[in-house]
Simulated scan of single mutants.
Amino acid sequence: MTFAPPPKTAAWRHLDAQTGFEVVYFRPLGDWYHIEGCTTGVEEGRTWIVGYAIDVDPGWVTRRAEITGQSVDGSRRTTLEGDGDGHWRVDGVPAPHLDGCFDVDLESSAMTNAFPVHRMRLAVGAGSDAPAAYVRSLDLAVERLEQHYARVGGESYDYLSTGDGFSAQLVYDESGFVMDYPGIAVRAL
Rank of each mutant, 00 (worst) to 15 (best):
residue 16 D to R: 09
residue 126 A to Y: 04
residue 120 M to Y: 11
residue 71 S to F: 14
residue 60 W to T: 01
residue 165 G to N: 02
residue 132 A to I: 00
residue 47 T to I: 13
residue 45 G to F: 12
residue 7 P to F: 07
residue 28 P to R: 10
residue 46 R to Q: 14
residue 151 R to K: 07
residue 146 E to Y: 08
residue 65 A to R: 04
residue 23 V to T: 13
residue 89 R to F: 09
residue 43 E to S: 15
residue 67 I to M: 07
residue 35 I to E: 01
residue 106 L to K: 09
residue 41 G to Y: 08
residue 127 G to A: 01
residue 114 A to Q: 02
residue 10 A to H: 13
residue 123 A to W: 01
residue 97 H to G: 10
residue 102 F to S: 02
residue 97 H to I: 10
residue 73 D to H: 15
residue 100 G to V: 03
residue 30 G to P: 08
residue 182 P to E: 01
residue 26 F to P: 00
residue 136 R to H: 13
residue 150 A to N: 11
residue 142 V to F: 05
residue 95 A to S: 09
residue 144 R to Q: 04
residue 104 V to E: 03
residue 39 T to C: 15
residue 44 E to Q: 15
residue 49 I to E: 13
residue 41 G to K: 13
residue 132 A to V: 01
residue 170 L to T: 04
residue 47 T to N: 13
residue 145 L to D: 06
residue 160 L to M: 12
residue 131 P to D: 04
residue 50 V to D: 05
residue 86 G to R: 10
residue 100 G to M: 00
residue 30 G to E: 09
residue 6 P to M: 00
residue 38 C to R: 15
residue 19 T to P: 03
residue 84 G to D: 09
residue 2 T to M: 12
residue 69 G to Y: 06
residue 173 D to V: 08
residue 62 T to H: 03
residue 167 S to H: 14
residue 13 R to S: 07
residue 143 E to A: 03
residue 34 H to F: 07
residue 6 P to Y: 08
residue 168 A to Y: 11
residue 101 C to H: 08
residue 126 A to N: 08
residue 114 A to P: 07
residue 129 D to P: 10
residue 150 A to P: 02
residue 128 S to I: 07
residue 129 D to Q: 12
residue 184 I to F: 15
residue 124 V to D: 14
residue 48 W to C: 10
residue 157 Y to H: 12
residue 25 Y to I: 09
residue 68 T to M: 04
residue 88 W to G: 07
residue 35 I to V: 09
residue 122 L to A: 04
residue 114 A to D: 04
residue 96 P to K: 00
residue 20 G to S: 06
residue 13 R to H: 06
residue 54 I to P: 01
residue 164 D to F: 01
residue 70 Q to A: 15
residue 62 T to N: 11
residue 183 G to T: 02
residue 142 V to K: 10
residue 125 G to C: 01
